[in-house]
Design a protein around this nucleic acid. Structure first.
Lengths: 198, 198
DNA sequence: TACTTGACTACACGATCGTGTAGTAGTTTG
DNA sequence: CAAACTACTACACGATCGTGTAGTCAAGTA
């Protein structure tokens, strides 16, 4: 994804092109012929390497999941951030996130499993962080969904901001805005108490 | 949408079926033949009434937008809530929201305009409510996107909760979880200050 | 050298898509 | 009564889709 296209094997180029086009246009919106053209190969080669469109999506699912987990692991161990500054990380991680969300919407089990693992992680995190919502599972699910919302509606959010959020600058802006959503309490304790009485 | 199907004109049944199927499967995922079958008419009649698939989506866009605005207006004037209790409102509004989000993702200008109007409304609301984020526009855009995220990821969120959020009970649960996200400050003021120093 | 294997292309297939055309039945209108 | 119009169906069209088949070419191997 980060290396020059001509240095990659045809199989890798097909997979990268599939992740890119699937993520941008949706699974149904990107044909095998589109992906083959994007990768610079024949459509038959896509079938030769992956068997079917479904199997291609499966391969993309597992690759994207592994890459995201790998990136997450490298990010958490703060000691070694070699080559993981935002400027190089963003162009790699953003298309992966985009693809995963699209695959989720298409009903992929692998992508959905990744979402469920994310909810589990957020749930554990609320415990260790001392956050005690009344509905912890619901809270974690909402937080996980929110993290993905800007990817899905990136065109609309970009238009609302007058700034492309697929760029690093735009992405950082909406990321900080999301942080403000999480840190500014919308309701006063008094209002919360009153809404509970109803 | 709420009346018995046999009491509606064929045109209305086609439109309702289109909103339902477009919302569930996406624009590309629902064919004109599918919609015609769902409405109990021939595929030719869809074309007769709406001209093309694009024009059908346009008609659905405007209908959904008008209905949502109408519902919103009836909800805000608290005096008259005739027939607008959640039990009857939910089955009407939920498919409309689902469709609007799908249409947005498909690049519909009408649906995107509705999103931008929503962002404007949230922005105005933060002003009158005394909420002052550093990036007010970004804050409003994030909040508007969040409101729609659970519709898109409804299958994943439902699976995470073990409860179908398309039902009124499930929808209320995730709605309250979202409220908790907005009301529980994630970071302490100390942590916010520290993150700003970086 | 002869054989096998894997990467790769060209091409044809049936299905499905949106769309176009022709025509029927019932109602309205002059 | 005849013409016109509207709601509606049946059917065929070209395009595109995922897929299947056959074959080329280069590299490895016995």
């Amino acid at each position: 994804m980060d290396r020059a296209a001509e240095d990659l094997t045809a199989r890798a180029r097909i997979r990268d092109a599939a992740i890119r086009l699937f993520g941008e246009r949706g699974i149904e919106g990107a044909s095998i012929r589109d992906i083959a053209a994007e990768a610079g190969v024949s459509s038959g080669l896509v079938r030769h390497h992956f068997g079917s469109k479904e199997a291609l999506r499966d391969a993309c699912d597992h690759y994207a999941k592994d890459r995201m987990i790998q990136i997450g692991a490298e990010l958490t161990q703060n000691g070694d951030l070699t080559g993981l500054d935002p400027l190089t990380l963003h162009p790699i991680a953003f298309p992966l996130q985009l693809y995963i969300v699209r695959s989720m919407m298409d009903g992929s089990e692998t992508a959905t499993a990744l979402f469920l693992e994310g909810v589990d992680a957020v749930e554990d995190w609320t415990v260790s962080y001392g956050i005690n919502p009344k509905d912890r599972r619901g809270y974690a699910a909402a937080l996980a969904a929110i993290k993905l919302s800007v990817f899905i509606l990136r065109d609309q959010v970009s238009k609302a901001l007058g700034e492309d959020i697929t760029t690093l600058e735009g992405y950082n802006r909406i990321g900080q805005a999301l942080m403000e959503v999480f840190t500014i309490p919308l309701l006063t304790p008094e209002q919360i108490r009153r809404s509970e009485e109803k």
